[in-house]
Deep mutational scan, measured.
Amino acid sequence: RTRTSFTAEQLYRLEMEFQRCQYVVGRERTELARQLNLSETQVKVWFQNRRTKQKK
């Protein structure tokens, strides 16, 4: 599997969503992935990694 390189715009949007809600599921995840031109899996994993980073 190749590592995803997020654009600055994608990271900004993901961070904004994370500040709003640390868990994104269902339709929200589908819509966010579509808007950012990413897969739902990429969005899901980004949120998982971001929550892990916050715990440290």
Rank of each mutant, 00 (worst) to 15 (best):
A33P: 00
F6A: 03
K44W: 09
R13Y: 06
V45K: 07
S5G: 12
N49C: 07
R27A: 14
L32E: 01
Q22T: 09
R50K: 12
Q19H: 07
R1A: 15
K55I: 07
Q42F: 07
K44M: 11
T41H: 12
S39R: 04
L36A: 03
L36Y: 01
E17H: 12
L38R: 03
T7I: 03
E17I: 03
M16P: 00
F6E: 03
E31D: 07
Q10G: 02
Y12L: 11
T2C: 00
W46G: 01
F18M: 02
G26P: 08
Q42Y: 13
V45W: 13
K53G: 12
M16Y: 09
V45A: 13
A33K: 00
T30K: 08
E40W: 02
E17M: 07
E40K: 02
Y23V: 11
K53C: 15
E28V: 04
T2F: 06
Q10V: 11
L14K: 01
Q35G: 08
Y23M: 15
Q42I: 13
L11I: 11
L11N: 15
V25W: 03
E40V: 06
T2S: 11
V25Y: 05
N37M: 03
S39C: 07
S39A: 09
Q48C: 11
T2D: 12
V24D: 05
W46I: 01
R50L: 00
R20Y: 04
N37R: 10
T2M: 10
A33R: 00
R34W: 04
K55F: 08
N37V: 04
G26L: 06
Q19M: 10
Y23G: 08
K55G: 13
R50C: 04
R20L: 08
R50F: 04
Q22R: 06
K56E: 14
R20K: 04
E28S: 06
L11V: 11
Q22V: 06
T7M: 04
Q35R: 12
E15S: 01
E15W: 02
A33V: 01
S5Q: 13
L11C: 12
R3F: 15
R50N: 04
T41E: 14
T52I: 05
R27W: 09
V25S: 11
F6K: 04
A8F: 04
E28R: 03
L11F: 09
R20M: 12
Q42T: 15
L36T: 07
L14H: 03
R1C: 13
E40Y: 02
T52M: 15
Y12N: 15
R34C: 05
L36F: 02
V24I: 11
F6Q: 05
